[in-house]
Amino acid sequence: MLIRTATMKDLEAVAAVEAECFPPAEAATKEAFAKRLEYYGNHFWLMYDGDKLISFVDGFVTDEADLTDEMYEKAELHKEHGAWQMIFGVNTVPSYRKRGCAGELIKRAIADAKAQGRKGLVLTCKDRLIPYYAKFGFVNEGVSESVHGNAVWNQMRLTF
């Protein structure tokens, strides 16, 4: 398995994996991913099995301490030297789940954020995933203000 950051050439594959992993109300569009790749492709961690994208983690960097819904839509808010690495999506195609793919990418994102001198990482997740992210050191801060996809999200933070 190859792990690398993204370029615009990965747009079709990233959009296809997102559509396979999230319901339409929660999935980012191809257009949104084009903006994300333009502004922070180096904050996409991709896992390929041969030439097939099987998993990815993405999110931008900001000085804001909390993840807001506006961040999903406005890639231009990315600040390369910001304090916090946000995680907007953790995606693994269904046929590759339960193999540790996403976990490897989360570990890489954590290691890169630490090496880059960030304060830590922030993500939001549904209740059922709180124990999963806690395994990596994320602490649940409670229900976030996010209404993304008309779902209830918990904010979790890993502070270095």
Results as ranks from 00 to 15, higher is better:
Lys79Asn: 15
Asn91Val: 05
Gly82Val: 01
Arg99Gln: 07
Lys126Ser: 14
His78Ala: 02
Gln85Cys: 12
Ile87His: 00
Lys114Cys: 05
Glu104Lys: 00
Val90Pro: 01
Pro94Leu: 02
Leu123Gly: 07
Ala113Asp: 09
Leu129Tyr: 13
Gly120Thr: 06
Pro94Thr: 09
Gly100Met: 07
Ser95Asn: 13
Met71Phe: 12
Thr92Cys: 03
Arg99Ser: 00
Val90Gly: 03
Leu77Gly: 06
Glu104Thr: 03
His78Ile: 09
Ile110Thr: 13
Glu104Trp: 09
Ile106Tyr: 01
Arg97Trp: 11
Ile130Asp: 11
Ala111Glu: 15
Ile130Gly: 05
Thr124Asp: 11
Ala115Thr: 05
Glu104Phe: 11
Cys125Asn: 11
Leu121Ile: 10
Arg97Pro: 01
Glu80His: 11
Lys126Phe: 15
Glu104Asp: 07
Lys98Arg: 12
Met86His: 01
Ala83Ser: 02
Lys114Asp: 07
Ala102His: 06
Arg118Ile: 12
Tyr96Glu: 05
Phe88Lys: 05
Gln85Thr: 08
Cys101Leu: 03
Gly120Asp: 10
Asp127Leu: 14
Ala102Ser: 15
Val93Gln: 12
Thr124Trp: 03
Lys74Leu: 15
Trp84Phe: 08
Ala113Thr: 01
Gly103Glu: 00
Pro131Ala: 12
Glu73Val: 15
Leu105Trp: 00
Ile110Ala: 08
Thr124His: 15
Leu123Asn: 01
Lys126His: 15
Arg97His: 10
Lys107Phe: 03
Ile130Gln: 06
Arg118Trp: 09
Leu129Pro: 09
Ala75Gly: 08
Gly120Ser: 10
Gly117Ile: 15
Phe88Arg: 02
Ala75Tyr: 13
Glu80Ser: 15
Val93Cys: 08
Tyr96Cys: 08
Ser95Pro: 08
Asp127Ser: 13
Trp84Met: 02
Glu76His: 13
Glu76Gly: 14
Met86Gly: 01
Pro94Cys: 08
Ser95Gly: 04
Val122Phe: 14
Ala109Thr: 09
Asp127Pro: 03
Glu80Met: 10
Ala111Lys: 14
Ile87Lys: 05
Tyr72Leu: 14
Gln85Gly: 07
Glu80Gly: 13
Ala113Arg: 04
Ser95Ile: 12
Gly117Val: 11
Trp84Val: 01
Gly89Val: 06
Ser95Thr: 15
Val90His: 02
